[in-house]
């Protein structure tokens, strides 16, 4: 099989230009979908029969929690590709993803706390779901701290990639924690394929937010990736032509 297309695709100049061209095409739909999803969730969706209007936190909490895991999975896959095939662009993708994932994890924890207080009567409980999500935040922060602490970029890439890959074991723990252990946290709402335990007019804004946040991550990651490529390629000849245009 001919792999030249992959090398072209993963070459820094090509990736830099492609990321620049793609970012707005992902970012603007993300923005539009966030507006639509928030309007649907906070205005149009009917109040919950048990939690009243308080359930609307769902529309920012669940997508944030989803992204905290999706971004980590993406980061770990990119890190693994970087480790195995020594593709520097993959390490750059992982590095560009970490801060975004950390923000989503923090948002999931904070909005969960704000939701827990009125519904459970407590801001925080050391149960499996909340604790494993907190560990996820520490994994992101640890990944970023490890990168920042190693001057040599290749060594930083490899060391942080190992941490990212090992940390993946935490993802199934987070997801299944509500089934494996006794918890205050409610179970899955929409992942039960074909039979979601939520009505359609509550569901569509939620799905819209999931899609919106995923696209949002793509757009922000592409911009961060460009910065990452510039820093790595600062002495490359293509940069001369690219920036002098």
């Amino acid at each position: 099989m001919n792999w030249t297309w992959l090398h072209k695709f993963a070459s820094p100049p090509h990736a830099y230009r492609l990321a620049g061209r793609l970012a707005p095409w992902v970012g603007w739909p993300a923005f539009a979908l966030i507006v639509v999803g928030l309007y649907g969730g906070f205005v149009l969706a009917p109040p919950d029969y048990q939690q009243g209007e308080g359930f609307r936190i769902l529309y920012v909490h669940a997508p944030s929690a989803w992204m905290s895991m999706f971004v980590y999975a993406t980061m770990a896959v990119a890190a693994a590709i970087g480790l195995v095939w020594r593709i520097k662009l993959a390490h750059a993708v992982a590095a560009a993803s970490a801060p975004i994932g950390a923000w989503f994890t923090f948002a999931a924890l904070a909005t969960g706390s704000l939701w827990g207080k009125p519904m459970w009567g407590t801001w925080w409980v050391w149960d499996a779901r909340l604790t494993s999500e907190l560990i996820l935040l520490f994994l992101y922060l640890g990944y970023m701290a490890l990168r920042a602490s190693i001057d040599d970029r290749d060594r930083a890439d490899r060391a942080s990639a190992v941490l990212a890959v090992v940390g993946v074991v935490n993802l199934p723990v987070i997801h299944y924690s509500v089934f494996w252990w006794n918890t205050l946290h409610q179970g899955a709402t929409i992942s039960k394929i074909g039979k979601p335990s939520i009505t359609g007019d509550m569901l569509w804004p939620l799905l819209t937010m999931f899609l919106a946040f995923t696209l949002y991550y793509g757009a922000v990651m592409l911009v961060r990736l460009r910065a990452e490529i510039l820093r790595r390629e600062r002495d490359a000849t293509w940069l001369r032509e690219e920036l002098r245009l």
Binding site: G27, P47, P99, T111
Partner: peptide, 22 residues
């Protein structure tokens, strides 16, 4: 419905995080 002090800070925090990251 009485949940304003929990709902609006949640929304505000997430919107802030989205804008800040961009």
């Amino acid at each position: 419905g009485g949940y304003a002090v929990y709902v609006w800070p949640s929304l505000g925090l997430v919107v802030f995080a989205l804008v800040w990251n961009v």
